[in-house]
Amino acid sequence: MDYFIELLFSGLTRGSIYALIALGYTMVYGIIGLINFAHGEIYMIGAFTAFIVATVLSIYGFPLLAIVVVAGVAATVWSSAYGYTIEKIAYKPLRHAPRLSPLISAIGMSIFLQNYVLLAQTSDFLPFPELIPEFAFMEPVAHIVGSSDLVILVTTTIIMLILTFVIKFTRIGKAMRATAQDRTMAMLVGINVNNIISATFIIGSALAAIGGLLIASHIGQINFYIGFIAGIKAFTAAVLGGIGSIPGAVLGSLILGLTESFATGYISSDYEDVFAFSLLVLILIFKPSGLLGKAETQKV
């Protein structure tokens, strides 16, 4: 039973990290209908920014809490700046081009960013400083649920609640929903659609950066390639839940995380990806629009 609970929590932890990244995919898709393949790289850049800031600060002996906060803020801001700039450089000029063009541009951006970090940093795995301490009160259950699992779950829950509130009730959230549902009409009621698209990229990037920081300190090492695999997984989760749907991205991520965790725990870690992507194939066959997605109807 303990083993089951352990797998359950590790699945939820994994799932919530996927969710932080998947939200960026799904929100961008919802607004401009683009799979932003460079989104995984944003997450990687977030992890690297946190790594650099945290390493420097720990050399100077700052307290752990200060390091976490500063590294978190730096990663969020820096990744958001990347997300914003990528949209302006690689996607905005192609706004009216055929759908394939921005997609290819996104893949190009992803390869560029990977290689840029590879050249600027190194291809080796770098040890990530341990930002989340082992809490004393977690001692009795530490063999089942780690402190970092707890921190990740609590942090992502809080972020999801804030995001839900922003999207449902704030002015910018309403404008985002309106733009996603009908861009022409959004323009006609006076929404500056370019600003809304930028805001979407910024919010998505900030979430991915927080995901990058959390997972890097959980696993303890990073390299330039982590964005690729995490990006593909999060994208799978977004499709699983129904791309374009925000609750769908969270649901899909949790299902994917749990599937991987149980497959690893009960069968073999070699089969982790097999199960993850089999799930994608199955959903594409039986419910192509995803669990909570709406079927797109083509009007003739």
Binding site: R171, K174, A175, R177, A178, Q181, D182, T184, M185, A186, L188, V189, G190, I191
Partner: peptide
């Protein structure tokens, strides 16, 4: 729109998943 020119486009373009109230709120954006 800020200058005071508003359009009701062909095919109405209601925001389908916003409530009637929210659609009206968007008008006063």
């Amino acid at each position: 729109v800020k200058l005071g020119i508003c359009q009701v486009p062909e095919g109405r373009h209601i925001f389908p998943q916003l409530s009637v109230q929210e659609n009206l709120d968007m008008g006063a954006f």
